[in-house]
Each structure stands twice: as structure tokens, then as C-alpha cells.
Amino acid sequence: MTTTLDMTALDLRQVNTRLQAAARAQANEDYVITNPRGSHAMACGLDGPLGVTIKGSTGYYCAGMNKEATITVEGSAGPGVAENMMSGTVTIHGDASQYAGATGHGGLLNIKGNASSRCGISMKGIDIVVHGNIGHMSAFMAQKGNLVVLGDAGDALGDSIYEARLFVRGSVKSLGADCIEKEMRPEHLETLAALLDKAGADARPEEFRRYGSARKLYNFNIDHADEY
């Protein structure tokens, strides 16, 4: 059953209350939201299986803290989309603004357009697939999970990165501190193939390069004592 919630008739709080209650009830229903008009915090805090399709563009913090729900934005998303996602899938048909998927612990964030700066900042296990380009300082302090970029990456990719894996098909403008290109081993190709398939991305794993941590910042180096 699909329920349509029209935001010309319902305000944001009414819409989110309906969605959150349905998610909590483990209803596994489908909802369509019309006339989102760039509203903030749409479909956030969903804590159970639910399908949500948003017909238009969203503002700040759409699909934040998502758990198990499948959320699709048929437009572009403002800053902080799918921030701190735990599980589930968030798909953006257009572009995503800055810090998409920040601090995410799990699930898949699938961005069909471009993502801007700070994509996947401090990611902690989320998988992010960006079909276009990403902006500067993406995957800053990224701890765990996979960031896959079919286009190009901006400046300072993976600065101060921990154990997240970064796969970029296009160019990388510059790598951040302690981020290096790494060998693409069979297990990485396998992971990447599965992610590309899941995200419906038209690309082959062999076309990508892998980047990750040089692990030089993990421990204090006594030779650098003078620098402090």
C-alpha cells in the first residue's frame, strides 16, 4: 500500500511523525511525499523498515539517522543528507550538498549526481557511492566503510583517514595528509563490484584506483617533537 503525504496540506512535523510512527510499527509500507519545497530534516530518524519517496528537492539534513528505511529523493538534497545513517538505503537522484553521509555507521548512500565538499566526513562504516564528482575535504577522518566515486575528487581527499576505503575512477585533485594510493587487491575488486552492482552504477571495478591510510599519523613520532 502506498500512502501519499502532500506537504502543501501537512507541515513537516506532521509528515515526520507519520513516517516515524510507521517505521516504529515495522509496517514496511511505502510513502510518497509530494511538494517538499526544499524543507529541512525530511524523513529523518526513521527507525524501521519503510519505503519513502520524496518528489522534489530537500533542504538540510534529509534522511538523518536513518535505520532500515529506504529513502529516495527525486531531486537534489541540501547539506547533511543521511547524516549519521545506521542502516538502510538513501538514494539521491540529483546532487547532494556538503557533508553528505557524514559520520554514517552503515547502510548505503547512493548519489546519482555530484556530491559537494566534505562528503563522507568522519564516516564510520557507511557505504557511499557517488555517480558524479565529489568536492574538497571528502572522507576527512574517515574511519570505516567505503566511498566510491565514479567521477573526480576535489582537494585533500581522505585527509587524516583511518581505515575507510576510497575508490575513485576519475582524477583526484590532491590527497590529504596521510592518504595514499594503495594496491587494488582481489578482495577490493570484489567489494567494489558488489557496491557498484548494488548502486546500479555503470562502471567496472578495474577502472578505479584505491586510496587509504598510510597509517603514519596513528602513533606519535618522536622525531616530530620539535614541531609542537
Binding site: R37, G38, S39, G56, S57, T58, G59, Y60, S76, G78, G94, D95, S97, S116, S117, G135, H136
Partner: peptide, 22 residues
Amino acid sequence: SEYRAFADLPGIEAARVWEPEP
């Protein structure tokens, strides 16, 4: 500053919408 401000512009559904680069 935000997409919200565009919601009532004529033909916005078909507009090219993008974020200016730094």
C-alpha cells in the same frame, strides 16, 4: 542560500539547479 527560496519560481521543476564551486 537554500533551495527553499526557489520553490515558488516559475519553471523551477525543469531548471538546472547546482551548487556553485568554492
